Computed example of a mutant assay.
Amino acid sequence: MKKNIKTEDTIKRWDNFAETYSKSHTEQGDVHKEIFLNPTLFSLMGTVKNKKILDAGCGEGYLSRLLAKSDANVTAVDYSPKMIEIARERTPNELSIHYIEGNCEDLHSLEDASFDLIVSNMVIHDLENYKKTFKEMFRLLVDGGTFVFSILHPCFVTPGSGWEKTENGEKLHWNVDNYFYEGAYEQKLGNTEKMVYFHRTLTTYINTLIQTGFTLECMVEPVPSKEMLEKYPSFEEDFRCADFMVFKLKK
């Protein structure tokens, strides 16, 4: 666990990892986004046609492109310059997406009440100052606007969590540790890169959102659909432990 790590350090790591990360993404994102997150996000967002949407932490831009193809008016921001570069390269000219390099903790270049909907897909746990981020999302939404975001499940994906296995590699159970630790920790992503995540408890997330002024409408712990299990049968194991949590909030 790394108490002294700041958002600036995560930006550098994501910039270095951007090319490798993007190679794992198709137009549906990576396999976890395809199976778990996309169906949940689009279900919670509802109709996006003609809505002004902020993709807060767009990465290589797959979600922005899906939204633009659904006739949304999309602005996409990411704190990694390399990610923004890749997102622009991957976006066809006919898709009008406004890409901005910026940190979701401080988006002062964007005006108050600019968006009908904000979606942030697997980003909040990459940010040190989550309180300021939530305040920024609240500021940028119109009254009655919707904020949908996904994160690693804070109850199960914790510093030191992982599968307990037999000598033959059989998965016995999922270990959880250090749940009440709040702060930065390193986690291996891919073959070599160690990324930084910021862990918080579920209590901290919900209370901070309420204190910011949001109304919690829905929480979802995504599981694979029957159709996805037919395509990816190995993900049957994800009924044993939740990997992700998705929130829908109103301003």
Rank of each mutant, 00 (worst) to 15 (best):
V223N: 09
E89M: 12
A87E: 00
E111Y: 13
F36T: 01
S114Y: 06
N121T: 06
E34C: 09
F156H: 10
L140T: 05
E101R: 06
K188W: 14
L54F: 06
L63K: 02
R240Q: 12
Q28Y: 12
L249I: 09
D177L: 11
K3A: 10
K6P: 07
P81W: 07
W174N: 05
M219E: 12
K52E: 13
C104D: 00
D106H: 08
N207W: 13
N4W: 11
V157F: 11
C58F: 03
H153G: 05
N129K: 12
G162R: 08
S120A: 08
L37M: 09
S70A: 15
K226R: 13
S43V: 10
K51L: 11
I35E: 05
Y21P: 00
L249P: 03
A68L: 07
K135S: 15
N175P: 07
T91K: 04
I210V: 07
D9W: 01
E8Y: 10
D126H: 07
R88V: 13
E27Q: 11
N121E: 02
N168W: 14
V246A: 02
T201P: 00
I206G: 06
I206M: 13
G169M: 11
L189P: 03
T166Q: 08
S109K: 13
T91E: 05
I11D: 00
E89W: 07
K23S: 07
D30V: 02
